[in-house]
Computed example of a mutant assay.
Amino acid sequence: MRVLCFTLLATVCLHFSPVMAQETATAPPQSVKPGINKSFLDPDLDVDQWIKRFEVESREVFRARDQIVKQLKLKPGDRIADVGTGTGLFVEPFSLAVGEKGWVFALDIVPKFVERVGKISDILDLKNVTPVLCGQDDVRLPPGSIDAAFICDVYHHFEYPSRSMASLHKAIVPGGQLILIDFERIPGKSREWTLGHVRAGKETFRKEVEDAGFEFVEEVKIPAFEENYFLRFKRK
């Protein structure tokens, strides 16, 4: 099992002016929904509990997983990032879709989820999967390292969406695709859980992705979806 955690190396200059220091200083990022990931960052997180919540027929994306993978239109040799892989629901089908010449980067901010994906990969002998412990505002992938990014029921958990999307934009090759699946949030129609948990609706999320340098391509209709939507974007 290989787990990647990319770090930045800082160059320390011994002689610089106060003006330079002021210019290079950056304000700390502001969370768009503080605490949204608190339960996932619990060091005592019970992975089995989340498997029971994520990998169950009552969850739309679990029920529709074959339709979703088909609509991604992955080709042998493609490199895809499963952003917020969670318990690794899509790791095996992605691995099979991209073939031995392709690659799957399974990203998550939760060490125990990353560890689980590594174990799954070993057990199933998925030689083209790399679990990645990413940051809350940085996917930690090298520039131009992926052809596609898959964000499924995860974007509303981005605390720093502009920074996370900027790092994804760098990681995806020009013309590469980004898939966004999330919950419809419509006051008066959506469940109370959705209204309280998901910070914004489809149009807001679409605009944020477009503002990050992606071109909207289409909304794909998934027959099994009642609460979710599937948007496809292209990296400019």
Rank of each mutant, 00 (worst) to 15 (best):
E100C: 08
F105Y: 15
W103T: 08
P111S: 13
I109H: 05
V117S: 08
F113S: 01
D82V: 15
I109M: 04
E92W: 13
V104G: 14
I80E: 04
F113Y: 13
D82H: 10
G84V: 10
G99F: 05
R79H: 14
T85Y: 00
G86K: 10
G84I: 13
G84L: 13
E100Q: 02
G102I: 02
A97S: 12
G99V: 03
P93S: 07
R79C: 08
A81P: 11
V104F: 11
K101R: 12
T87S: 08
K112W: 07
F94I: 08
R116C: 01
L107N: 14
D78K: 08
L96N: 08
D108K: 03
V117N: 05
D78M: 14
G118T: 03
W103F: 13
A81W: 14
A97V: 02
V117L: 09
T85V: 12
G86C: 15
A81Q: 06
I109R: 01
V104L: 09
E100G: 11
G118M: 11
D108C: 05
F113M: 05
L96Q: 10
V110F: 11
E100D: 11
V117K: 03
G84D: 02
V117P: 01
D78Y: 09
S95T: 07
F113L: 02
L107K: 09
F105C: 06
F94C: 04
S95D: 04
S95L: 12
F105H: 10
V114C: 03
V83A: 06
A97Q: 09
R116Y: 00
V104D: 11
V114R: 02
G99Y: 09
P93F: 10
F94Q: 02
P111V: 05
W103N: 12
A97D: 11
F90S: 07
E92L: 06
G99D: 01
E100Y: 14
R79W: 10
G99R: 08
F94V: 07
V83F: 12
E92V: 09
D78L: 08
G88F: 10
F105Q: 05
A97F: 06
G86P: 06
D82W: 14
G102V: 00
T87K: 00
D108A: 13
V104H: 03
A97C: 01
P93N: 12
I80P: 03
D78S: 15
F90L: 05
A106L: 10
V98W: 09
P111Q: 11
W103E: 14
G86Y: 03
V98T: 14
W103K: 15
F105S: 09
E100H: 06
V117I: 15
V98C: 02
V98K: 15
G88R: 09
T87N: 00
R116I: 00
V91K: 05
V83W: 04
D82L: 07
S95C: 03
D82T: 06
D78R: 06
G84H: 06
